[in-house]
Design a protein around this nucleic acid. Structure first.
Lengths: 203, 203
DNA sequence: TAGATTGTTAATCGATTAACAATC
DNA sequence: TAGATTGTTAATCGATTAACAATC
């Protein structure tokens, strides 16, 4: 399954999927490993090797069937498996992510937001309600949520993370710049935007 | 310089910096490679090897001087070198990034936004003005901007990217899900959020 | 056929980890 | 001293690239 595919391969497959979506729109029927490799500036044999994971066959001289490849990437990466999440922090970034409707195409399903600002409580953003943070534990339990997206201000991030742990959240996608201390069983993904920026502007 | 440090090392050094900022707040004077490695769940010799790039000396039995290490990472990664950018697309994500004041600590300096919606033109967001996209070429030239953050809707991303290229932008930080076709000389960084998400929730 | 493309193996490259002497 | 830590080398591991037979 997915768990024995490397991070880098998953990242690349997601990018191939973006290209395929475009090809569908443009009504192109086939795509070659070389076309993908040139768009992403990677090696074409890398692309072919990644595609072997999809268990589909390309056609020599022609390439891969766009619709078929797209579908099998979706299956491999589990786009059709709904992954329900809560967003913690209804600030600018929390709202941006909530309004980002593309997420649902990838199975990422935002169910609700949490905040402590009384002015925000019970407002509706893109059909999702903002709850007071004190309701978190109860709702995590009732809705069986395992994943939280953390978009609170960095200075309170650890404190809120402690609440997430107590509420039995298993995965924290951390958009703050605080490195969180959590028990071994909790999985953290640090979305390190500045790292990406510093890397790509380094020359 | 930075250009011969690998992407992964830059990413890690940025995370070390986040930890050090926290240590400063907590008034801790020293930090060991092991403390860093446990917070980030990586190997301690990896941390020590990365730190050798900073050209500072740790103290045996004690660790590294927090303030000194923090400062030398900032120097190594060029946090004090202002990198001026324009944000293209004053939607939710564009606004979220504009309001994200931590960026300036890393040298990322947002100067203005661009959009085509008449209701947004000339509004001020976090002290930055929104200009009509037609003003882009002129302002890029006058302000000598090389970097653009692309946060427009994906369906128009290629079209807008073509304008960025024409305006002489050299770096495009792409937050859309469109894989852009640009000349060889333009550098693109695809901020692949879904890839990160699918990777970290894969088990 | 000639040529373009896949599928796959072997070679290369680079990143991570293990190990340990040196230090205080 | 004993023990904790750095700095660094060598070993391991994994990812990328090169090469090319097979296919149509």
């Amino acid at each position: 399954m997915l768990s024995n595919i490397s991070s880098k391969t998953i990242q690349r497959l997601t990018l191939y999927h973006c290209i395929l979506r475009d090809y569908i729109i443009k009504e192109k029927e086939y795509i070659s490993s070389n076309q993908i490799s040139e768009l992403l500036k990677i090696d074409d044999s890398q692309v072919r090797k990644d595609i072997t994971l999809c268990n589909i066959q390309g056609k020599s001289k022609i390439g891969y069937d766009v619709a078929e490849l797209k579908k099998s990437i979706e299956q491999l990466l589990g786009f059709k498996i709904a992954k329900d999440v809560f967003i913690i922090g209804a600030g600018n970034l929390g709202l941006a992510l909530t309004n980002y409707n593309d997420f649902k195409d990838y199975g990422l399903n935002i169910l609700a937001l949490f905040d402590v600002d009384p002015k925000k409580i019970n407002t509706i953003i893109n059909s999702k309600r903002v709850f007071h943070l004190s309701k978190l534990g109860d709702l995590v339990k009732r809705m069986e949520i395992e994943i939280a997206i953390l978009t609170v201000p960095s200075p309170v991030a650890q404190e809120v993370a402690d609440m997430l742990v107590k509420a039995n959240i298993k995965y924290i996608w951390n958009f703050t710049t605080t490195i969180l201390e959590v028990p071994e069983t909790i999985k953290i993904c640090n979305e390190n935007l500045m790292g990406s920026f510093l890397d790509f502007t380094k020359n």
